[in-house]
């Protein structure tokens, strides 16, 4: 590995920014099969537990005057509900549980991934590609079910001059199929970039002279990462809403 050579040359300054993303079996050291319990599995399970704790246990008292956790759950509910309603309109509201599940999973996984020594599940393309493909396939199938062949009107820009329309159709088609790619890489890339940068700064801390600066930088990056964790979940969700709107109302 190239970094190891670097580390050997500079003496003591060793960077392994990507090691935190290695998927390892929880028990033993064997190969990773389909059903092996790995650290990724653990943190996926913790994400599920966190979502359940917030949305089910937190609201179990059904209080009119909410407790702290209940009001956080209600806040998340209202936030996503308003987003779905604003972007997709009234007829998109029945897909709200689906979008809410995506949002809660992504936001919880992002925040849990920020805990020290944790494993950021959303930094893996395996996870985000599945999420993005789930959205892409659902939206495409839904578009054809709701609008039939009329869904192809999404690519036929009727407001453009007739001569330009075939060209635009090709561009629209390409951009439509790039959607899941950018959708997934944006999320994983942001999370991975933040974690890797923090790790690089942490690597600098090995030198006593710059370690205070490195700690300050890590703290600043951590603050930024908290922001990014939420914003990326928000962006992922609102893009899902936008795609859903395209499927429900394909006219431009």
């Amino acid at each position: 590995m190239a970094t190891e050579a670097n580390g050997a040359e500079t003496g003591g300054l060793v960077f392994h920014p990507m090691d935190q993303f290695i998927v390892k079996p929880l028990f033993g050291d064997g190969p990773i099969g389909m059903f092996t319990l790995t650290n990724a599995t653990l943190w996926l399970a913790l994400t599920v537990l966190a979502v359940v704790a917030l949305m089910v246990l937190g609201t179990s008292r059904r209080a009119i005057v909410p407790t702290r956790s209940q009001s956080v759950g209600e806040l998340a509910y209202g936030f996503v509900y308003k987003m779905v309603e604003d972007v997709t309109g009234k007829d998109g509201v029945k897909y709200f549980p689906y979008i809410m599940s995506l949002f809660m999973f992504v936001v919880m996984a992002n925040f849990l991934g920020l805990l020290p020594m944790s494993f950021a599940t959303t930094s893996h393309f395996a996870v985000t590609v599945v999420l993005a493909l789930a959205v892409f396939l659902t939206v495409t199938v839904l578009g054809f079910i709701k609008n039939g062949v009329g869904f192809l009107g999404l690519f036929w820009v009727s407001s453009a001059p007739l001569a330009l329309r075939p060209v635009l159709a090709i561009i629209e088609l390409i951009s439509y199929f790039v959607r899941p790619v950018s959708h997934s890489i944006r999320l994983a890339g942001n999370v991975m970039a933040g974690h890797a940068v923090i790790k690089v700064f942490a690597g600098f801390a090995a030198l006593a002279v710059i370690s205070p600066l490195s700690i300050v930088a890590i703290t600043a990056m951590y603050g930024l990462e908290i922001l990014v964790a939420f914003i990326q979940a928000y962006v992922f969700t609102i893009l899902t809403c936008v795609y859903l709107k395209d499927a429900l109302h394909p006219g431009h």
Partner: peptide, 14 residues
């Protein structure tokens, strides 16, 4: 090699 594992558990979680 880890994708199958991650995707399986992710689908379970979702």
């Amino acid at each position: 090699s880890t994708w199958g594992n991650q995707i399986f558990w992710l689908l379970v979680a979702l």
